[in-house]
Amino acid sequence: MKINQYRRYFPIFVAPCLVAFLIAFVIPFVMGLFLSFTEFRTVSNAQFVGIENYIRAFSDDSGFLESLWFTVKFAIISVITINVFAFFLALILTKSVPGTKLFRTVFFMPNLIGGIVLGYIWQVIINGVLYNFNYSITSDPTFGFWGLVILMNWQMIGYMMIIYIAGIQNISTDILEAAKVDGAGGFVTLTKIIIPSVMPSITICLFLTITNSFKLFDQNLALTAGAPANRTQMVALNIYETFYSRNGYEGVGQAKAVMFFVIVAVIALAQLYLTRRKEVEN
């Protein structure tokens, strides 16, 4: 009976959110899936072409595969470096070192700065260093690659550090004391107690760093915009350029976007499945 009484309130409680969700996400998502199998300029003149767009995404130019490979390399290196640095910072900051609060504040700060602004900040710094050797960030894709890695580390380490700190502080001091009494050294405590106990934090940090690395756009656009010759172009930027910088490629752009979505979803779900399983075991 009470449930029925609630039901009358559906239009107030759910409808606004539902309508917004339909307009902003569900309808565009379904349309996007459909349009990836058509050729179109505007949405209304779409003509069905089967999987041609998916073939053209690879055959018309090598940019998509190249950007995908660039993104994968970037994601692997960034995910490892960010998580390792963030985890060790969290370990140190949960010890009785003076000034931990202030250090936390400083390390987290870059995370609040937007991607476009971050990109230009690092462009000035990296160009300033390279200027001494008569290079600029766009003279070699290697510079752009490592520039993005450094930028991403600077931005994300603080965020992940906060999550690891919360995880480490959740470990009961009894267990740590017991380990100490039993004569466990620092390394054993780390690998046998701390890391297994913070598995939930590791799951979420890996998830956030992997998805953010794959989806990176603003930072890429501001730091190099793909230069030189699109060789530092990541997938998100490649798709954007396909849509908006080339006439007649809207369908191909949408097909790339669908593949991009599938790749991100599969990797994210696989990672969640694998690390969650570790959580249960421990």
Binding site: V264, A268, L269
Partner: peptide, 12 residues
């Protein structure tokens, strides 16, 4: 919707 990249829906 949380894991879908923005590029998937940006045009539509």
């Amino acid at each position: 919707s949380m894991i879908v990249p923005f590029q998937m829906v940006m045009f539509t």
